[in-house]
C-alpha cells in the first residue's frame, strides 16, 4: 500500500499534468510560452506578498500573476520595445523581485527551493483541495470558451470579423494562466510550470488531427508523464518536479524527432 504522502503526491502530479495540458495547447498555438513563464515567475512575488500581508498564499499568487498579465497586455500595445524583450524584462523583474521580497519579508519561513522547483512530496490536503477546485475551474472555463479560443488561435482577424470576442478570449487566457500558476506552483515550482504547459502539447501535436484531439492527447501525456516522473523520482531518489519534467521533455523531444523524420506532418 502506498504511503498517504505518496498518494497525495501522485494525485497532485497527475492532476497538474491533466489540467495544464489543454491550456498548454492554447499556449503553444498562440506562442505564449514565454508569456506563461513570465506570469509563473510572478508566483514567487505572490507568495512573498501573501506572507507579508498574511493573506492566503494562493490568493497572493493569483493577484500578482494577474497584475503581471495585465502589465504584459498593457505594455504590449506599444511598438518600440518588441514583445519578447518586454517579456524578458518583466519575467526577470518578477523573478528577482520575488527572490528579494522572499528573503526580506519571509526570512526562514519560506522554502525558496520548494517554490522555485516544487516539492511534490510535501503536498498537503489543502493543496489538493485548491488543485481540485482550481483545476475544475480552469478546465471548465477552457471548455466553455474552447470554440472562441481555438478560432482566435487559428485566425484572430477572421474570428473577430465573425463576431467572436477576441479581447475576452485574450483576457481569459491570462486569468487561466494565473490560476494554473497558483495551483501548480507548490507542486512543480515557478520555474518548471511552463514545462507542464508546453511539453505535453508538443508531444501530442504529431498524433493529433484536430485541436480537440491534441488537447485530449496532451492531457493523457501530461497525466501519464507525471505519474512516470514521480515513480522515477521515488526509485532514483531525485526531486519530483524535475523528474517529471525530464520524462515530459523526453516525450516531447521524441515526438518532435519522429515527426521531423516523417517529414514535418
Amino acid at each position: 500500500m502506498l504511503e498517504p504522502f505518496l498518494v497525495r503526491a501522485l494525485i497532485a502530479a497527475v492532476g497538474v499534468g491533466l489540467v495544464a495540458a489543454p491550456l498548454g495547447c492554447l499556449v503553444v498555438w498562440r506562442r505564449m510560452s514565454y508569456f506563461g513563464a513570465t506570469i509563473a515567475h510572478g508566483g514567487l512575488l505572490g507568495v512573498a506578498l501573501g506572507l507579508a500581508l498574511e493573506i492566503d498564499l494562493t490568493l497572493g499568487v493569483v493577484v500578482v500573476a494577474l497584475i503581471i498579465g495585465g502589465l504584459l497586455v498593457g505594455l504590449g500595445r506599444q511598438r518600440i520595445v518588441p514583445a519578447d524583450s518586454l517579456l524578458g524584462i518583466l519575467s526577470h523583474a518578477a523573478l528577482a523581485g520575488g527572490i528579494v521580497a522572499a528573503s526580506r519579508l519571509a526570512g526562514q519561513r519560506l522554502d525558496l527551493m520548494g517554490y522555485l522547483f516544487g516539492d511534490v512530496l510535501a503536498v498537503s490536503n489543502s493543496d489538493l483541495a485548491w488543485l481540485g477546485v482550481g483545476g475544475a475551474l480552469v478546465l471548465g472555463v477552457i471548455a466553455a470558451l474552447w470554440r472562441t479560443l481555438v478560432a482566435v488561435a487559428v485566425h484572430e482577424e477572421l474570428a473577430q470579423a465573425e463576431g467572436l470576442h477576441v479581447a475576452r478570449a485574450e483576457a481569459a487566457l491570462v486569468v487561466l494562466l494565473a490560476l494554473t500558476v497558483a495551483i501548480a506552483m507548490k507542486i512543480v515550482g515557478v520555474l518548471l510550470i511552463v514545462a507542464f504547459l508546453v511539453m505535453p502539447a508538443a508531444a501530442a501535436r504529431p498524433f493529433a488531427s484536430t485541436p480537440e484531439a491534441m488537447a485530449a492527447i496532451a492531457a493523457v501525456i501530461g497525466g501519464v508523464g507525471a505519474a512516470l516522473g514521480l515513480w522515477l523520482s521515488m526509485s532514483a531518489d531525485v526531486p519530483g518536479g524535475p523528474a517529471i519534467v525530464l520524462v515530459l521533455s523526453a516525450a516531447s523531444l521524441c515526438a518532435i524527432a519522429w515527426s521531423a523524420r516523417k517529414g514535418g506532418g
Partner: peptide, 16 residues
C-alpha cells in the same frame, strides 16, 4: 499555422 492540427471539416465549423 501548422502548430494547430486542423482538418478542413473542423476548420469549416470554426465560424458556425
Amino acid at each position: 499555422d501548422a502548430a494547430i492540427p486542423m482538418t478542413v471539416q473542423r476548420f469549416l465549423t470554426l465560424g458556425a
